[in-house]
């Protein structure tokens, strides 16, 4: 594998890893008004993602950074072409981040409720916006000969963007519900599982459709297999949830995303941004990439840095691995009953 291909894989892995990890905190945030009926429930839901969301978000920063670093031609075509959706993403991420920290700054219930709504809204906007951007960069944008968007500010707001947005929203919502059933105990655990069970078949459709469309355009035998794996994983998720095995269901639902993204990026390669105007204007791995020298440097640094990062991030997941149970809001969380996972 040459370095450009290696870095295409790395960027695809980073974007997928971001969706996989931030997906459950997006999902939990989206479900706050649905599953969090009482303040105690919402409090519990937020505690499941509290220590983890910021670390998850770094995956986005790294994914964008690696896209820029390895493929500036992709970064510099994609971002301005989807200017307004990306701005919405930023607004969503900003308000959600401050809401996570600031909602504890007062015991006032209205203050808390307001920031909780901000977390939900910001997460919905950010996940839909990033889904739209990813849908557009894999299914096509109106890119002209000079790598510049044609047709004005809204020409990128097309059905591929809509499909990507719906796919990421729907997949994350179920991911969040399965995560809650895995991380909590008591009534919330059961409601989250029942909710996920109902939604799995529907929520899988958009992400499978996205993968199938990219496959139809430029799929290979290998990506046909990954597409089938993704579809099969949906069935497994449903069966494992029905059997009450949340851990296995979580793994299977994660596999739906992993296999779908493998199909999407694997089929799209070596195109990183197809032009809907003329295939001659497609942005390719080879034309978007930086020099071999820079790729070599980054490969060495990543080879040493990435295992360390993965190690300590996995370790924090381990530290916060317990199931959490609800407690009345103003009581001792430090002494919560911790049920081993």
């Amino acid at each position: 594998m040459d370095l450009q291909t290696l870095w295409f894989v790395a960027v695809a892995v980073l974007w997928t890893g971001f969706l996989l990890l931030e997906g459950f905190d997006f999902g939990v945030a989206a479900l706050l008004p649905v599953l969090g009926r009482k303040p105690a429930d919402r409090h519990l839901m937020l505690r499941t993602i509290g220590p983890l969301w910021d670390g998850n978000e770094v995956w986005l920063v790294t994914a964008v950074g690696a896209t820029f670093a390895a493929f500036p031609g992709w970064y510099a075509t994609w971002l301005p072409a989807m200017y307004l959706p990306f701005v919405l993403v930023l607004v969503g991420l900003i308000v959600r981040a401050v809401a996570f920290e600031w909602r504890h700054s007062s015991h006032d219930e209205r203050w808390d409720a307001t920031w909780t709504r901000v977390i939900t809204t910001g997460s919905l906007i950010a996940s839909a916006g990033l889904g739209a951007a990813l849908g557009a960069t894999t299914l096509g944008l109106p890119i002209g000969a000079d790598g510049v968007r044609v047709g004005g500010a809204f020409s990128g707001w097309s059905w591929p963007a809509l499909l990507g947005a719906v796919a990421v929203l729907a997949w994350s919502t179920v991911h969040g519900a399965v995560f809650l059933s895995l991380k909590t105990d008591g009534e919330l655990r059961h409601r989250a599982r029942a909710f996920a069970l109902r939604l799995v078949p529907v929520a899988a459709l958009p992400v499978l459709a996205w993968a199938a469309l990219v496959w139809l355009r430029s799929g290979t035998v290998v990506t046909a297999v990954t597409l089938l794996v993704a579809a099969g994983a949906v069935v497994v998720t449903w069966a494992r949830l029905a059997a009450g095995r949340e851990g296995q269901a979580f793994t299977a639902w994660a596999m739906v995303l992993l296999a779908s993204m493998a199909t999407v990026f694997g089929s799209a390669f070596p195109v990183v941004l197809p032009s809907t105007i003329d295939p001659a204007f497609d942005v390719l791995v080879s034309t978007a990439s930086v020099s071999d020298y820079t790729l070599t440097v980054m490969t060495w640094v990543a080879a040493f840095g990435l295992p360390v990062v993965l190690g300590y991030q996995a370790w924090t997941y381990w530290v916060f691995r317990q199931r959490l149970v609800a407690e009345p809001v103003h009581e001792e969380p430090a002494d919560e009953e911790e049920v081993p996972a």
Partner: peptide
Amino acid sequence: GDVFGSVLALEALLAFFLEST
């Protein structure tokens, strides 16, 4: 892109993960 992007990416990988996690 050949120089600037890699510095930003390494910042995310080597520093920002450490800080946030």
